[in-house]
């Protein structure tokens, strides 16, 4: 499913997939995370309300850290000291939101192709029929998002992120709204993405078993600073 040049091209061996050191105050809560990871899939693990989603939002550019630095696969996305702050559309992240966030006024096909149409040709590593076959969502293409089940919507959201030509993926509790059978199915899909596409993944979850099965590196997030 991946094109031949995809897996190895973007990694000199010592390059970190994620180098993150951010601080952000949200309301009366301080979120501070520091970690470096060279794993294919890095998991942010911690209880609900620990600020895991905020960290993903900062990496995606949807939330501006008060200070720190974000480097993904060698590209500086944010550097407070150097006054670098790429807008979200320049970061090329495939963000799979916990609540899907499919566009309600567009068909599944147009949702899938939204990012693909905007991506430069050289970053389009997958085609629509590859992704639909991979995720088993071919029969859904002409449906509207509100007619999809939770599992279907989640697969479409993953497909949309993959098709956007993402340089890295952010997955926010992608299994939380699914029953056990569906969760297992999506987990297999994520493993396949992790092993075949060579795209670094930052994965958020509060489920220990899930994280231990998927992640090459686990970053605990709780109160205060993480190692």
């Amino acid at each position: 499913m991946s094109s031949e040049n995809a897996p190895s091209e973007n990694a000199p061996s010592e390059q970190m997939s994620f180098e993150i050191d951010v601080r952000c105050r949200r309301g009366h809560r301080d979120i501070a995370v520091t970690f470096r990871s060279d794993a294919a899939l890095t998991a942010l693990f911690g209880p609900s309300g620990a600020g895991k989603t905020s960290v993903l939002d900062m990496v995606a550019g949807l939330l501006r850290p008060d200070a720190g630095r974000i480097v993904v696969a060698g590209t500086v996305l944010f550097d407070h000291a150097a006054r670098i702050n790429l807008p979200p559309e320049a970061r090329a992240c495939g963000y799979v939101f916990q609540d899907g966030r499919l566009f309600p006024h567009r068909s599944v096909r147009d949702n899938l192709l939204f990012g693909w149409r905007l991506a430069p040709v050289e970053r389009r590593r997958m085609a629509l029929d590859e992704v639909t076959a991979f995720l088993g969502i071919g029969p859904l293409l002409d449906r509207r998002p509100h007619t999809l089940s939770g599992g279907e919507a989640q697969r479409v959201a993953i497909g949309r992120a993959l098709l956007s030509g993402a340089r890295f993926l952010l997955l926010d509790e992608p299994l939380s709204s699914l029953d056990a059978a569906r969760a297992d199915e999506i987990m297999a899909v994520i493993e396949q993405v992790r092993d075949e596409l060579g795209v670094p993944i930052l994965y958020v979850s509060h489920d220990r078993a899930e994280v231990e099965r998927l992640a090459g590196r686990i970053v605990p997030i709780g109160e205060g600073r993480s190692a």
């Binding site: 995606a60 550019g61 979200p88 939204f114 949309r160 992120a161």
Partner: peptide
């Protein structure tokens, strides 16, 4: 209009104006 949808469009590569034209305005 759910602003989180606008955020999603931005992460998919749409600039502020395109997000307005293709997400905010139609919704």
């Amino acid at each position: 209009v759910d602003r989180r949808l606008e955020g999603a469009a931005r992460t998919l590569g749409a600039g502020a104006w395109r997000t307005f034209a293709q997400i905010t305005l139609p919704l």
